[in-house]
Amino acid sequence: MATMKNEIDFLLHLADNALIIGHRNSEWCGHGPILEQDIAITNIALDYIGQARNFYQHAAELINRHPIGIDITQTGNDIVLPATEDSLAYLRDVREFKNLLITEIPNGDWAHTTLRLFLLSEFEMQLFTHLLQHPDAQVAAIAEKSIKEVSYHVKWSQDWVLRLGDGTEESKQRMQAAIEAIWAYTGELFIQPEYATAACLNYAAIQDVWNKKVSAVFEEAGLNIPSKTFIQKGGAEGMHTEHLGYILAEMQYLQRAYPNSEW
């Protein structure tokens, strides 16, 4: 049973990551700096919502199959049964969400948004590659499908890091400022959550590849990695920034205001 709880928590972690970063990216829709790029970031948001749905659906299936004795929430609140993708996305509160902090911080300018996506999607690329070996075939299948999308996210966001890092004086300053602001949230990527117990996961190896990839791009763009290495963490365990509450208040408003309705 402990293994099942771990897998469910891990699926929720992956789903929450995708949902919250998808939400942030979707905030750009209609407000992007270039029409083609507005379409691109919106499309990336859509990819993430799709990934979130896949992970939530699988989590819901496991929860419904093993409802007895599983307290899947950290605050001891009862989960609504039967679980669905929507009950998991819309009816859990801040302390139950397991997304990484880097996904919930505000978008900032285009440099912050593209840099965050670059740092996150390089991580996801490695994580999902490990998950191809996951003993649960459904998890491996979702990872395989997601990798196709993440490869594009990496390419697109990396191009923006290079373009802005090596564009104008102003864009370089803005990209460097984004790095200074976001760097503290990157350490959490490599802290293995307690429930991430699948043998195929090796966070040290993920970090190793990530460091190499990110350093190479920063070097090509003439950007510096900050020397201060303090790490903000806790998201994966339900300890969030104040921002997440506002995201959920907005996202969950209809489900909360009109309970038990079909949409």
Binding site: P33, I34, R163, L164, T168, E170, S171
Partner: peptide, 9 residues
């Protein structure tokens, strides 16, 4: 500034 940077690059 984003469009300027993309053009300069």
């Amino acid at each position: 500034w984003v469009r300027d940077a993309a053009l300069a690059y």
